[in-house]
Design a protein around this nucleic acid. Structure first.
Length: 111
DNA sequence: AGCCTGACTCAAA
DNA sequence: CTTTGAGCCAGGC
């Protein structure tokens, strides 16, 4: 029998990683890419999350921010406000420039 | 198959 | 501080 199913796709890996991010913590796109095996595939991570489009509420997409600790949905308006609201509700604080203190909020999987 | 785009990131100027 | 270019992956035409 030929291979019934190949390794999980990049999307799948992204979802699995994001799903493990605990409440009140955040990760960066680059981090997720690294965990998925492609250190420089941060763009694909964003693309994967974009593909969710709210159809998968089991994935805390709002806990993913860019490397500067800021929300990358700046150009999408409503979604950006939603993300910030959701994070603040989990206890994640933003400074005057809309940045999160990654030194304290960054989550990292256990090897 | 090729080319373009995008919720990204980093280094260099 | 800002701007530019290159690298990465998947999807649509």
């Amino acid at each position: 029998m030929p291979e019934p199913q190949r390794e999980p796709t990049f999307y799948t890996r992204v979802y699995e990683v994001v799903r493990r991010v605990p409440r009140g913590s955040v990760v960066t796109y680059g981090q997720v890419a690294l965990i998925c095996g492609s250190p420089a595939a941060a763009r694909a991570v964003g693309y994967a999350l974009n593909a969710l489009d709210g159809s998968d509420d089991t994935i805390p997409w709002w806990r993913v921010v860019n490397a500067q600790g800021r929300i990358s949905l700046k150009g999408r308006g409503a979604a950006a406000d939603l993300q910030r609201a959701l994070l603040e509700r989990e206890g994640v604080a933003f400074d005057g420039d809309g940045r999160i203190d990654l030194r304290e909020r960054r989550w990292w999987p256990e090897t």
